[in-house]
Amino acid sequence: MGTTLRAELSEKNPYWIEKHRYYELKHFCLQYPIWKKAYAALDGTNTKTMNLAMRVITNNIDDPTSRYAIARTYYADRMNMLERVANFTNPELAKYLLKGITEGWSYDILKARLNIPCCKDIYYDLYRRFFWLLDKERG
């Protein structure tokens, strides 16, 4: 799935962020399904999931239990950040925002598959607000 290039927001828009920062945050969000899968796989019972724990920088910790715990925390922190920002953006539409942002679903797909209870203008205004808040959260 490629990134669709869209016209850049006007700097007068209250949710404006620099174009490349937006793409950085967008690609960060698109990793959410990967984090969910990795988090679920890191249950401590499967030795094949050790590579997931090894991907997370652990300062050469040799204890496998600590490695698992650090890796699970790494993935959980990132997932919680996106969920928290989506909830702060709009609690009623958070699940739709999260689905659209983390899986690349457009408003039209959300409307057809999940019957999102708002109009396109409201959704995309919240979409921009989400990235603006995420930019503040990630610093």
Rank of each mutant, 00 (worst) to 15 (best):
K26R: 12
K26P: 02
K26D: 13
K26H: 14
F28G: 03
F28P: 02
P33I: 14
P33V: 14
P33G: 10
I34E: 08
I34G: 00
I34V: 12
W35K: 02
W35G: 04
K37Q: 13
A38V: 05
A38H: 10
A38Y: 10
A38E: 04
A40W: 06
L42E: 10
D43H: 07
G44E: 11
T45A: 05
T49H: 07
N51S: 13
N51C: 10
L52A: 06
L52K: 01
A53C: 13
A53S: 13
M54Y: 14
M54D: 13
R55Q: 15
R55H: 14
V56C: 03
I57L: 04
T58D: 15
D62S: 08
D63H: 06
T65M: 02
R67N: 12
Y68S: 03
R72I: 00
T73K: 09
Y74P: 00
Y74G: 01
D77F: 11
D77M: 11
M79V: 15
E83T: 12
V85W: 00
N87W: 01
F88M: 06
T89Q: 01
T89W: 03
T89E: 03
L93E: 01
L93T: 01
L93K: 00
G100K: 01
G100D: 07
T102R: 03
G104E: 07
W105Y: 15
Y107D: 06
Y107L: 09
Y107C: 12
D108H: 12
D108Y: 13
K111W: 12
